[in-house]
C-alpha cells in the first residue's frame, strides 16, 4: 500500500502520529491554500510563521486549492491511501469530504494527535470547569494515562 501524507497548518511536525501511521519514507505534502487562509483570516505574520516552519520541515509544498490538488498529487505519487492529521477545522473537514468524493478508490484516513487526557466518556463542555473536573486527574499524569 502506497501512502501520502497531507500536512496542514494545524499539525506541522514530524513527530505527529500521522507519520507513524504511514509506511516508512512516505512523502508529506503541504498545500499553500490562499483561499483557505483568506477565509480563516490568516494574516501576513502568521503566514510567515507557517512558512518558516515549513522550511525546516523540508516537505513538498504546492500552491492552490487543497481539495483540487490533492487528488492530482495522490495520483502523481501512485498512492492509494491519503493520511491527514485530524482537525476540527470545518474548512479542512470539508476539503477532506471533497477529496473523498473525487477519488473514491483511495482511502482517506484522519489520524488523531497524541491524546492530552484520557476520559471514560465525552465530557460536559458547557463550561470549562465541568470539563476540568473530569480531566484533571488524567491531565496531571505523564501522557494523560
Amino acid at each position: 500500500m502506497a501512502d501520502l501524507i497531507w500536512l496542514h497548518e494545524g499539525a506541522l511536525r514530524r513527530t505527529h502520529p500521522v507519520f507513524a501511521a504511514a509506511a516508512p519514507g512516505t512523502a508529506a505534502i503541504f498545500v499553500w491554500d490562499r483561499a483557505r487562509f483568506a477565509a480563516g483570516h490568516v494574516g501576513a505574520r502568521r503566514q510567515l510563521f507557517i512558512a518558516e516552519t515549513l522550511a525546516e520541515l523540508e516537505i513538498e509544498i504546492h500552491e492552490g486549492d487543497a481539495a483540487v490538488l490533492l487528488p492530482q498529487l495522490v495520483a502523481a505519487h501512485g498512492a492509494n491511501r491519503l493520511l491527514v492529521p485530524a482537525s476540527p477545522d470545518p474548512a479542512i473537514i470539508g476539503q477532506i469530504a471533497t477529496i473523498r468524493q473525487a477519488m473514491p478508490q483511495v482511502a482517506v484516513e484522519q489520524v488523531e494527535d497524541t491524546a492530552f487526557v484520557t476520559l471514560p466518556r465525552e465530557p460536559d463542555l458547557a463550561r470549562f470547569f465541568r470539563y476540568w473536573n473530569k480531566a484533571r486527574k488524567s491531565a496531571l499524569r505523564p501522557h494523560g494515562v
Binding site: 511536525r13 494527535d113 505523564p142 494523560g144
Partner: peptide, 12 residues
C-alpha cells in the same frame, strides 16, 4: 496552535 508542539509533550 500549529501543532509544532503537542499538548501531550508540553505537559510531559
Amino acid at each position: 496552535r500549529h501543532g509544532i508542539l503537542s499538548l501531550d509533550e508540553v505537559r510531559n
